[in-house]
Computed example of a mutant assay.
Amino acid sequence: MKTAWFVATIGGVGYLRPAPGTWGSLVALPMAALLHLIGGPWLLVIAIIAIFFEGLWATTQITRWQDDHDPSYVVVDEVVGQWIALLPLSFGASMMGASIFALWPGWIAAFVLFRLLDIFKPGPIGWADKRNTPFGVMMDDVIAGVLAAFFVVMLAALFHLVIMI
Rank of each mutant, 00 (worst) to 15 (best):
I84C: 07
I49Q: 03
I48N: 08
G24S: 11
L89F: 00
A58P: 03
G11N: 12
Y15E: 12
A47D: 07
Q82D: 02
I108Y: 01
K2A: 11
A102C: 00
M164V: 13
D140E: 10
G40V: 01
R17L: 12
G55Q: 06
D129C: 02
A149R: 07
D140R: 07
W23P: 08
V112A: 08
R64W: 07
G81I: 12
R131E: 00
A110H: 00
I51H: 13
V76S: 03
L37E: 14
M31T: 13
R115W: 09
A32I: 11
L158V: 15
A8R: 07
A32H: 07
A149Q: 01
A28W: 01
T60E: 12
K121Y: 02
V162D: 03
G136I: 01
L34Q: 13
H36R: 01
D68A: 02
K2L: 14
I62A: 01
W65K: 15
M138Y: 05
A19M: 15
G12I: 05
V13K: 11
I46F: 13
A144Q: 05
V13S: 11
D77A: 07
P20W: 04
P18D: 05
M31L: 15
V79G: 04
R17A: 13
R131C: 00
I49A: 14
L35E: 04
M154Y: 11
L29G: 06
M154D: 12
G12F: 08
F101D: 01
F135D: 00
V162R: 11
V45A: 12
Q66C: 00
L161C: 06
M138S: 03
G21V: 10
G123Q: 11
M96A: 15
I48W: 01
F91L: 12
W104V: 05
H36K: 07
F101N: 08
V142H: 06
F135L: 15
A110Q: 03
L34T: 14
V75F: 05
F91R: 06
I38W: 13
V13C: 10
V137E: 02
W107F: 14
V153C: 15
I163G: 00
L117C: 06
V153L: 15
G123R: 13
K2F: 10
A110M: 09
T60H: 11
I46K: 10
